[in-house]
Design a protein around this nucleic acid. Structure first.
Lengths: 420, 420
DNA sequence: CTATTTTGTTCGCTTTCTTGATTAATTAAT
DNA sequence: ATTAATTAATCAAGAAAGCGAACAAAATAG
């Protein structure tokens, strides 16, 4: 039965919270709206909108912005009093736990980062210690900024590996060396019972992009992230789609080469991960550099600074033919996998993060061509590609989005209700 | 904006319909429930349940079945009065428009078929004529059975090809030779304004299986249908998932052979359809039969009666090695595609319909092995395979399910409201 | 300066669910 | 056999929410 929304009864107070959320989401999507516009949008009466808005204004979440500018469109009648969401009325904390890095950020209601900090952590740091560092840094950041628990909607955690969001447990994270870490419980305890939402980091990124990205909200979005492995977070109608066993979006193990592919760490052969992840690209690049010790690639790898992967991309951009060809081949394989993703999931947009964002310009031509060619009919041409709206902050913003999502969309009893 | 459920305001009367639906869905899923059990399940008060049930009883949709049997579990207290859905209180019409066949059926509220009829239609029959035949036959069936429009919840149509459910239009059906046929409008006009829901036939089958199949309701289900082409219908939480451009589940065009595959009618090469559809299997079988004119396959094809594809399967069952090997190879390719489906969509169950159901026993061993081997981690082992609960009636039952779904789950103003 | 239009508010009404008391029907214990 | 305990279902009173109608506010059009 799980928590079947259809079997759960409704009542008047739920109607009220739903309507409050409708108003808030409307004000989240549009920069400003009048009460009349809200009434038209929601189908509620003017009376109801007046009453609910009064409460939101009282809470400081909404503010009257002043009267509408006179415009040629509006002809007669009393001008609208425009309402605006006050982003800094509440805050969310986002925590992104990556492979060697942890990042914590405070964001406002629009998921705009107020402050953030990053630090490296040792590769085999015990989970408990990592969590203690996080909670310590988070609470000192909150104290420093003078954010009280009353102003916080919650804390979201995006962690790599297999995560159980119901339990708030990081079930298995090989890259971190963790197993069954009760992240939500530990963090909530350390932070005085703050609501904590935990999910996989790529899924969090996908949610952040879908809800708070620059483009309009998509009906279906895939956030494809490549680094050590390759995975996708899927969002449908503003909600994370996890599949029946939290396995949705595991495209890193799409079989791209049916016969005689390279062995993958998952046990199979010919997986996408064996063809396009960061380590694999680096390995190929090294081989190419050895073949041409005086080539652009080899010299760039020797002389330039910065992350190795960036140097490989730089060499391709500088005109190294063999590197370019190697990357185009990778892009073709990624394209085959994404065409399959398109045929199954049919997203409106695909966001490419991680290495794919770093080498976006290099991958795109071949990728777009492969996808529009291999996907069914014109599905491949309809899908839009983009880089993450929040760049390398996609992780924390996504994590914060987990908390913001339950504030705006899910949670029936939120901060507002407490005060009444 | 489309029809964003979050932006739509709610009110008390919607609460009431929601609660009525919660009760109905509960009674749909369990053979019988007491008022007290319904109260616990929905979280509503006993009083509310009493009132709402009274209405449903008054409408004849629910009936008191008698007092609970004394059991060791129940110890003290007044025994529960068990309530039961009356399936024959309302009916739905399902229309399945296949390649050379149309089937119409009347079902009750549990999607059990009361009566059905099939007929063949000429391959290039004009759409208008086909629709006229359908509505004529449907209304004469209704008249014959004495079903009034008051007792009907609606009519569902499952049609092959690309369908726009919002508009009720069959946009493009190459197998039928149709383009932009306004099925919903034509049928509603001919049937006195009966609510008509139109969708793709495989999606309808998936819905029928998910809502009314023998197994418990899955969180995510894929119905894979193979005949001329191969496609999948996806259902998530009891709702059809269509993707952003109605392209979700087009697995027939999964690229299985990356380099040098056979050309597909979609323009690409190496698509799943070029490897496992009915025509392709028949073609391979003919080639095998020519190689061994005295083999089991060749003689079976010559002598036996029935559809050719069945004779191919019969030959394999009778021990024809080369046919068996050929089918196993097909199963392997299907397995690769389904493993990718599992990695992206992660369904709880995969239902195999069409040719895959006919040759289920022959495909399964290789298929299961390939999927559990190639899908990520243990995702492939977790997924359950099955044949359609409604066999060759999956099409009509699914079509009826389209109408029943809007009765049970969607439609805010349903037959009930009219009488109050 | 008046009519018109659109926005926003106040008041009384209707609808629905809930709480708490009450009745009903059974088992367990004295 | 009688009483207490327990669970199921109903009744009566009350609370909460949204709605429609009337009204006030603030602009334009003529």
């Amino acid at each position: 039965m799980a928590h079947d929304t259809i079997l759960t009864g409704s009542n008047i107070s739920k109607v009220r919270s739903h309507n409050l959320r409708a108003i808030l989401v409307g004000l989240l999507r549009y920069p400003s709206l009048s009460r009349a516009a809200l009434a038209r949008m929601t189908g509620l009466s003017n009376t109801t909108i007046t009453n609910l808005v009064a409460e939101l204004v009282h809470e400081g979440i909404v503010v009257e912005q002043g009267v509408e500018e006179p415009s040629p469109r509006r002809r007669v009648g009393r001008p609208q009093m425009l309402l605006r969401l006050v982003p800094e009325a509440r805050y969310a904390v986002g925590v992104s736990i990556g492979v060697g890095r942890t990042r914590v950020a405070l964001t406002d209601l629009r998921a705009t980062i107020v402050q953030d900090e990053v630090w490296a952590h040792p590769h085999d740091q015990p989970a408990r210690q990592a969590v203690d560092t996080i909670t310590l840094r988070a609470s000192s950041m909150l104290k420093r900024l003078g954010v009280t628990s009353r102003q916080l909607v919650g804390l979201g955690v995006g962690a790599s590996g297999l995560v159980d969001p119901e339990m708030g447990v990081n079930v298995y994270a090989p890259n971190l060396g963790w197993r069954d870490v009760p992240l939500a419980q530990w963090m909530a305890e350390a932070l005085g019972g703050l609501p904590v939402v935990v999910d996989n980091n790529v899924r969090a990124m996908a949610l952040g992009e879908a809800l708070f990205g620059q483009e309009r909200q998509p009906t279906a979005l895939a956030f494809v992230y490549g680094r050590i492995g390759v995975g996708a977070g899927l969002v449908v109608n503003g909600q994370i789609y996890r599949g029946s066993a939290a396995g949705a979006g595991e495209i890193g193990h799409t079989t791209v080469v049916v016969q005689g592919g390279e062995r993958c760490r998952c046990g199979n052969a010919g997986c996408l991960e064996t063809l396009v992840s960061e380590p694999v690209i680096l390995r190929s690049a090294e081989q190419l550099a050895q073949l041409e010790p005086q080539g652009i690639l080899a010299t760039t790898l020797r002389c330039e600074a910065g992350p190795t992967i960036e140097r490989v991309f730089a060499a391709a951009r500088a005109g190294d033919r063999s590197t370019m060809a190697m990357l185009q081949e990778r892009a073709m394989y990624l394209g085959v996998a994404l065409a399959n993703l398109v045929n199954v999931f049919n997203p409106e947009r695909i966001v490419l993060g991680g290495v794919f964002a770093q080498g976006y310009d290099l991958f795109m031509p071949t990728l777009v061509e492969t996808v529009s060619h291999r996907a069914f009919a014109n599905l491949g041409e309809k899908v839009q590609f983009q880089t993450p709206s929040f760049g390398h902050l996609a992780g924390v913003v996504g994590a914060a989005a987990l908390a913001l999502e339950s504030f705006f969309y899910q949670h029936p009893e939120w901060a507002l209700e407490v005060t009444r």
